[in-house]
Design a protein around this nucleic acid. Structure first.
Lengths: 212, 212, 212, 212
DNA sequence: TATGAATGAGTTTTCATTCAT
DNA sequence: TATGAATGAAAACTCATTCAT
């Protein structure tokens, strides 16, 4: 039951961690769209298939089941994000600037692909099963990136060394995550990317006035 | 949404300040337990009934449907929390101390009732429908309490006045929420309440070192 | 809207090995009818339900699944047959007469309930899974009854003592089974019960002429 | 019947004396193996294809559909058996010896090809459709061979003339069939061929002691 | 001949909810 | 109030078969 996935014969893009040919990605995009629209549980696999322009059964040629569709959206999008983040951050020296870029990238990708954002912020949170799975894989990598930047900042003295870097990384994630969820749920179209700076201002400087 | 049968829309009793007698609360506790254990979707109403020691049909004498069980857990627990928070905070003068007490209360209640915590952090997040509903009711009240404390602090000069109090309240919620989710998902039994102080340290002072 | 609201009238018959109230047996009879008509695989559970005059879901209140319907027909009918056979044979002294009565009972019940006969001779044989299950339970009891009669006959000298009684019991079953299958498949309506005597003639005396 | 898709009725090649080249027979053997292992219904055509070392589509170049695989196993194996039986029996004068040889051949072929035996004794019995089809074609020929030998024996006075030869042939088939099914289902590896003699002993002489 | 990716029909089963008692 | 037997809607998934290459 595990390895039902046919390997794409046509190597389209750069050989990533998981082979995604055109059809596989089309189904994934369709799934994100449908899940974002109707919610994961309301969404029918046949809706996904129709949106992707394939037959119902074809979905199962590429994905094990409906769950797999959801988790694959996560790992696919997260994989792409992490790759881009690594690339972009490589050229930035300053730890604070890195975090700002990271947050902006995170937010701007969500703004570019709202469906993905909805799936990430809402649909993926539906069960401990998913949550645990994600926490231990790609999300861990996400947190690890944050942590390394924070430690970098601690070493050069921009960030308080007394703080546990892993703990602080989680806090930053909490801030970004809450903003993202808010943006997804709010119906006014305020810019999410524009929130990166004020969020990091608080993260960097806190809300207190005097720092005796 | 997730119920398979369309529910006849019937206007029940006053939705606010719902009277909870012993049986009603027993069912709610049973529901929290079952939902936390199996997840909302896997949980069967008959499981809830059995756990509560009543017949299946009895559940429907107290709650409109399965969804209502979930939302009632939220409003019941949130109502109790807000009442206690209001009472406790009344006796505290300092804004920072208020926020600390608030966070500690939040965390300690979760530690006392893990089932409720799981339902809050995981099961309630499963759909935009719930999320939006909560954001606009009890959660709004929660945020409003935070906001008022923050504005209080701004007025007396402890918190930066330039910051939008609503925005900052959401950020604090993001921090606390992330900690809570982390605690729920982690299998090691670290204390959640103990996290309140370090979280607020970062919230108050930020992670940066120099505040010229 | 539901029109038929039948209430279980829990009037149970004689407490058998397996409790079968009226509804349970009605579903079983309906299943036998539908399976005999369309074949097990073609038969839809909803057909069974409709024939029994209950809702689809009700079938699953009494039977675990479609397979259970099939196996329950077997154990139910076989149980009834064995009980009757035991009762009838008690009053017969002669081993040969016992076997004749046994065969006649077997055949006459099939003639009275053709649906059951079809299910026994055809639908039940569809897989090794079923076959093995049956061979080791009720069929074993059937064979055991035959065996005991044969041994009885051997002790009083009517049957050849050199023959292994278990082996001979199987042979007799083979003869009766083949006749039954033939009758079920043949479209002319010859009497099955009338075959008992000639079959046992061969079983007793063989086909050879000289027995020096 | 058991295929989910309605098959376009297309008249194929001459149904009798089907040419079997190497690949066709390889597929048939693979089918027997897979059917014996998993049962006809659980067996997938793609399993058969893989076992035979061909692509899924290739199966359909040689066989009309999945049903055709099952029936072809029957006619192919039965055809081979009948041919061999005719050849072997030609050299035997005595009717009793002929029947014994026939039974031994039947049993020994099953022992040589257990997969075929399983398909014959179990998988082929699954539906009235198959049963009737077989009863009227190759099985009829099988019975006819037995019948002729019996009539031969009746003419020379070895077998009781009063017995209907067709009826007696069926009875013998019943005996052999039951033994074969027993052997297929039993997990101890007793010899099937060795059963031929004792079975025919009973068939010839009956189980009774005195034949006054 | 041979391939194997794509198709899409079709049914079992679950379980929230009802309502006669 | 309380019960729990009965209801019936609804969708994921499989896999035999096709057909473009």
């Amino acid at each position: 039951m595990q390895t039902k996935r046919k390997v794409a014969v046509r190597v389209d893009e750069a050989p990533d961690e998981k082979q995604r040919n055109g059809k596989s990605e089309a189904i994934l995009r369709a799934a994100a769209k449908v899940f974002a629209q109707s919610g994961y549980f309301n969404a029918k696999v046949s809706d996904v298939a129709r949106t992707a322009g394939v037959a119902d059964g074809t979905v199962y040629l590429y994905f094990k089941n409906k769950d797999d569709l959801l988790t694959s959206i996560f790992s696919w999008a997260m994989g792409e994000f992490l790759a881009r983040a690594r690339a972009e951050l490589a050229g930035i020296a300053n730890a604070k600037d890195k975090l700002l870029s990271f947050a902006k990238l995170h937010f701007s990708l969500f703004e570019q692909e709202r469906d993905i954002a909805v799936v990430f912020q809402i649909e993926l949170r539906q069960s401990a099963k998913f949550m645990e799975q994600f926490s231990t894989t790609y999300l861990a990598e996400y947190l690890q990136m944050l942590r390394e930047i924070i430690e970098e900042g601690q070493q050069v003295g921009v960030f308080r060394s007394a703080l546990n870097s892993k703990f602080v990384a989680k806090l930053l994630f909490g801030l970004l995550d809450e903003m993202a969820t808010n943006w997804v749920l709010s119906h006014n179209n305020h810019s999410l990317t524009a929130m990166a700076e004020p969020v990091l201002d608080v993260f960097f400087n806190g809300v207190s006035t005097n720092h005796a």
